[in-house]
Structures are given as C-alpha cells and as structure tokens.
Simulated scan of single mutants.
Amino acid sequence: MQYAVGIDIGGTKVAIALVNEQGKIVSEDKLPTDLTIAPTEMIERIIASVNQQLDEQVLSDSDLIGIGIGAPGPLNSKEGLITSPPNLKNWRNIPIVEQFKSHFTVPIRLENDANAAALAERWLGAAQATNDFVYLTISTGIGAGIYVNGQLVTGLRGNAGDFGHTVINPSYGECVCGQHGCLEHIASGTAIARKGSQLAGKSLSTVEVIEAYQQDDPILKPFVQDVFRTIGIACVTLINTFDPEKIVLGGGVTKVGHVLFKEVEEYVKTFALNPASRATEIVPAKLDQNAGVIGAAALILQG
C-alpha cells in the first residue's frame, strides 16, 4: 500500500492526514493556526504532527511517496513559496517546501488550496470522470479550482482560480485586496456575517444570518437573496468563461442546502449566454471538510 501526506493550511486551523492510494484517511490531526508565532515555528509544529502520525502507524518517510500541501494564495507553487495570503498576515514569502525538504526526502508539492480540493472532488467526489468543471468554494473566503480538457488550470505561479477577487458590485465597498465589490467581499461567510450584523444592528454569525433568512426576517431575507443572486452571477461568469460540464459548490456557506442551489440554478438557466450552457449542472461537493487534505494528498497520489 502506498501513502501520501496531505496538509491543508487555513487561516484558523491546519489539517494533516495520512492518506492511502485509495483516498482513505488512515490517520489525521488538526492544529490551530497560531498567528502569534513565526511561520517557520508553525511549520515545525506541522512537521512534528506528520512524524507523530508516521510513528503511530509504524511507518517512516521512506514509506511515503510524497507530501502535498494545500495553502491559500497568493503563493508561488513553482518555487514552493507561500507569498502573501490575506488570512495569514505574517506569512510573507515563506519557503515552506524548502523547510519540509530539510526533514523529508520524499517529493513535496505545494498548490493552491482550492486547486487541491478540486483534485479531490475529481478523484473521489462530485466531479468523478468529469474533464471540464469548476470547483467553487464559498467559506471564510472564496476560491475556485478549474479543470479544463482534463487538466487543472494553475497559471504561471499557481494562482489561477483566485476567483473571489473578481469584481461583482463596487457599491458593496472596499475588499481586503483594495478593490471594491469583490465576490468574496459580498458572498463569503465572513462577508455574510459582517453585512448581516450591520443590517441587524447586532453581532451575528453567518449561521445566524442564514437562520434569520429562513425565518423570513424582513431585513435579512432580501440581503441573503442578493447574496444567492451574487453567487449565481459568479457561476454564470465561470460558465461563460470556461464552458464547464458542471460547477461543484463547496464550503461552509453551501451547507444552507437546497434553497441556495435552487436560486443559483434558476439564475444560470436564465442568464448563461449559450442556451446549451443554461443546463450546466450545479452540484454540491461530496467530500466536505476532508476535501482539503485528500486533495493535498492527491497532488502526490494523482499527480
């Protein structure tokens, strides 16, 4: 049996898993992302977790075929650098691959986290046997993994698919990236909680805003409907640009379920430019919270 390590680095936590060649998680660990320490120290904690899991499974790094790392962009996958992710504010030009290579002799591969999750969905999830699809994750932030003609589109440095910073409606104000009206600034979980709290006049979580929508709150219902419409706009933009067979929606915001998918499907059926594209499938991701680590391992196992 062959094994790979998958590592999914996020703004609040890091998931680390040992994954076999069938895509089964053999062991896993989660660490809080500590932004009060140097990135190199945080990476050492991740490396220690990898070694601990290998020890527990009575394996050594010689039993691995590689280590895959999914991380938020911007990054430089060619040079193995995490360059400037907004949710990891002190991670600037961090040579994470080089640091891992000082501990392990196996191949190490770094990729954008949305790209890694797209690999997982194609391998074991909602996009199996699909050569043209887009995986759109809507969570704390928004990103896309794009598959065209059976290949993952990565771009020059690995940042293709940073779709959350596509401008949708400048009237929504300034995004963390400096532009006005980015998709992520309107429709991410962070954005829903922020704007919903402003409208309600009290602090609300994303879940609480969605619950108020489901209870026909007269203030928050129109707002959430506009968020769903914005996600529809994003999907039409992706369809018009890449002509995919399907769009896979993942991330915490999509857990609202049928009502979101219904609104997005209706928007696509109405506004996709090519009449044939109006039937593009809009489907939920299947791997949920495991997509990141399985996708990171897939960088090695399916690469």
Rank of each mutant, 00 (worst) to 15 (best):
Y3D: 00
A4S: 13
V5W: 06
I7W: 06
I7L: 05
I7V: 15
G11R: 10
K13I: 12
V14K: 03
V14R: 01
A15I: 11
A15S: 14
A15E: 07
E21T: 08
E21H: 11
Q22V: 09
S27L: 11
P32L: 14
T33P: 03
I37Q: 12
A38C: 10
P39R: 07
T40L: 13
M42D: 09
I47K: 05
I47H: 02
S49A: 15
V50R: 03
N51W: 14
Q52I: 11
Q53H: 13
D55C: 12
L59A: 02
D63G: 10
L64C: 01
L64K: 01
L64P: 03
G70R: 01
G73C: 06
G73D: 06
P74H: 07
E79R: 07
G80D: 09
W91T: 11
P95A: 09
V97G: 07
V97N: 04
Q99E: 13
Q99P: 00
K101H: 10
F104Q: 01
T105C: 09
V106Y: 05
V106R: 02
P107F: 04
R109G: 02
E111M: 11
A114Q: 07
A117L: 02
A117T: 12
A120P: 06
E121P: 06
R122G: 06
A127C: 05
A127R: 01
Q128L: 02
A129M: 10
N131Y: 01
I138H: 03
I146T: 11
I146N: 08
I146S: 05
I146H: 10
Y147G: 02
V148C: 08
V148L: 14
V148W: 05
G155T: 04
L156P: 02
L156E: 15
R157W: 12
G158D: 04
G158N: 07
N159W: 02
N159Y: 08
D162G: 15
H165M: 08
H165I: 10
T166V: 13
I168E: 12
P170Q: 14
Y172C: 07
G173L: 12
C175K: 10
G178I: 06
G181N: 12
H185A: 13
H185I: 03
A187M: 10
G189A: 10
I192A: 08
G196I: 09
L199P: 04
K202N: 12
L204Q: 03
V209Q: 03
I210H: 02
E211Q: 14
Y213C: 12
D217Y: 11
L220E: 07
K221H: 04
Q225V: 02
Q225D: 15
D226K: 15
F228V: 05
T230V: 11
C235Y: 01
N240D: 15
E245N: 13
E245G: 10
G250N: 05
G251N: 09
G251W: 08
V253D: 05
T254I: 13
K262R: 13
V268W: 00
K269D: 00
K269W: 00
T270N: 10
A272P: 00
A276S: 13
R278C: 00
A279N: 07
A279M: 02
T280W: 00
T280E: 00
E281L: 12
L287C: 04
D288N: 13
Q289L: 13
L299M: 06
L299P: 06
L299F: 01
Q302Y: 03
